[in-house]
Amino acid sequence: MNRRILIVDDEREIAELIEIYLKNEGYETEIAGDGEQALELFEQKPFDLVVLDIMMPRMDGLEVCRRLRRDQSVPILMVSAKAEDMDKIMGLMTGADDYMIKPFNPLELLARVRSLIRRSYQFSPPLNAGSKREELTLGALAIDKASHTASVNGKPLNLTSTEFGILYLLASHSGRVFSAEEIFQHVWKEKYFESNNTVMVHISKLRDKLEQELGDKMIITVWGVGYKIEA
């Protein structure tokens, strides 16, 4: 099955360069020149991943991300010339799964795309021998690895693939504390860089979604160590 990727960027040359690299990898692609066109395309057909620029006319990438996240869990790779930490945090808090700074190496972008697709559609976090379970139940929370879904009292949780990966990792090792570095390496399967705040932002979003439905705190921060879920 060829994955379909939507490239959203008002700089046509950049969009076409990305398209060339993705097509060479066997992906199907379409290009949208602004946010409004991107949403129109999404109404017409499904996509498996979005490469989304932030600074665009008519509707910027942050607003596109917000609207997609209302009812879509599609992986979103945000790209931007904005390189400050707060810009990255804003992009991730809006709902992006990953964030790249322009100018970027196209080969790195390909690696990020492959990683996102693997996490989203072929998810299999490493577990200790004997602890692998397809379905988990922690109180009102139910997690189904096979369908990549989670629910509270039967009500589905709208999680991104990254949020699901973190939730499954912590829930399948209830009581164990994972450092940000360990979470990153397990879920992203990439090398962790010091001062990387990506995990913190995704934990914050996941915690908010769980607390909204459960009414209490499930993900516990162990200061100076990491994060855990208590059954």
Rank of each mutant, 00 (worst) to 15 (best):
S131A: 14
F164I: 10
L92T: 07
G224A: 06
L17I: 13
W223V: 13
E135Y: 11
I219V: 14
I7Q: 03
D48G: 06
E230D: 12
H186G: 02
F47W: 02
S147K: 15
N24H: 13
A231W: 07
V187Q: 04
A111G: 10
A180G: 01
A142M: 11
E36T: 05
L68D: 09
Q212P: 00
E211V: 11
E43I: 06
N105E: 14
D71R: 12
V64C: 09
K189C: 05
Q212H: 12
S204Y: 12
T94M: 12
A96T: 02
R12V: 13
V50F: 01
G165L: 09
V8S: 05
S73Y: 01
E134A: 15
I183P: 09
E181F: 06
E40W: 06
E63M: 04
G26D: 06
I14C: 07
G175I: 06
L49N: 07
E213V: 02
I18R: 05
T137Y: 10
D53N: 07
S174C: 06
T198M: 03
A111S: 14
G215D: 00
V177M: 06
V222S: 09
Y99V: 01
Q37P: 02
R12M: 11
G165W: 07
D97Q: 01
L92Q: 08
I117H: 04
S120I: 02
V50P: 08
I18A: 00
T198Q: 10
I14G: 06
G95A: 10
S131D: 14
I20W: 12
M55T: 08
P57L: 09
I31K: 07
A81T: 02
Q37C: 08
P156W: 08
M56N: 03
P75K: 03
E211A: 04
W223Q: 11
Y99N: 01
Y99H: 02
N128K: 15
V225Y: 00
R112K: 14
L141P: 13
Y99M: 04
R112E: 14
R3M: 14
E190N: 00
V222M: 05
I203A: 03
A96F: 01
D10H: 08
A171N: 13
A111T: 13
C65N: 05
G165F: 02
E28A: 14
L169V: 15
E211L: 03
Q37S: 07
I101Q: 05
I101L: 03
K191S: 13
R118F: 08
L210S: 08
V8L: 08
S115V: 09
V64A: 06
D85A: 15
I220Y: 03
L77K: 00
H202D: 09
F178A: 02
L206K: 00
M55E: 04
R58C: 07
G226S: 08
S195R: 15
R4Y: 00
R119Y: 05
T94V: 10
P57K: 10
F164M: 13
R67D: 01
L77A: 04
A83E: 05
M93Y: 12
K155Q: 14
S120A: 15
F164E: 11
H202Y: 07
A180H: 13
T221C: 08
L159S: 12
I31R: 03
E163C: 04
K88V: 03
K205W: 04
